[in-house]
């Protein structure tokens, strides 16, 4: 009965959970958002700093389960340093994977450690956990762009 569970809790996810990357809130930033998952109470405060059309920094303070925490960590790895348009397309790819109910084959070249979340897509109750910080990032990035326009 652990096989099913292991497909959810990949080693990569547990590693990010224990040692989250880019955690904490930092300056400078143009936008800060606070997103919650109303069904379970998980919360994330997330800041985005955009410089010259590139995602210069994403910093966050998150309270939540292993999936939501690891997802925030993987998000920052994937988008920091990328041009905004490219980061947005990574976001789209991750969203497609999470909403695919386990039928989408993830592209490791694009999603890197994010492919570990393929198993989460089979657990409908946990998809929102994985998407919490990603939705917050999209929101904060849109606001950042408005700020700097």
């Amino acid at each position: 009965m652990n096989a099913e569970l292991d497909s959810l809790y990949q080693e990569i996810i547990l590693d990010h959970y224990k040692n989250p990357h880019h955690a904490g809130l930092r300056e400078p930033y143009e936008a800060e958002v606070h997103h919650v998952n109303p069904t379970c109470g998980d919360e994330v405060t997330l800041r985005v700093h955009i410089a010259d059309g590139t995602v210069a920094d994403v910093s966050y303070d998150a309270v939540g389960c292993s999936i939501s925490q690891a997802s925030a960590s993987v998000l920052t790895d994937l988008v920091i340093g990328k041009p905004v348009a490219e980061a947005m397309s990574v976001h789209e790819e991750f969203l497609t994977l999470m909403q695919g109910k386990g039928t989408v084959e993830p592209d490791e070249d694009v999603l890197e450690d994010g492919i570990a979340f393929a198993g989460v897509a089979k657990f409908p109750a946990r998809v929102k956990c994985a998407l919490l910080s990603w939705m917050a990032w999209k929101d904060a990035t849109a606001r950042s762009l408005e700020e700097t326009r």
Binding site: M1, N2, E4, L5, L8, Y9, T39, C40, G41, D42, G64, C65, S66, I67, Q69, F123, R126, C129
Partner: peptide
């Protein structure tokens, strides 16, 4: 985290609730 506890318990057939149980102020 409670979600993770509930998930592991569920894989063993044990159904519990995880979250704020609609009592956020008490939490």
């Amino acid at each position: 985290h409670p979600h993770d506890i509930a998930q592991v318990l569920d894989s063993r057939g044990v159904a519990v609730r995880a979250g704020h149980h609609c009592a956020k102020p008490a939490h």
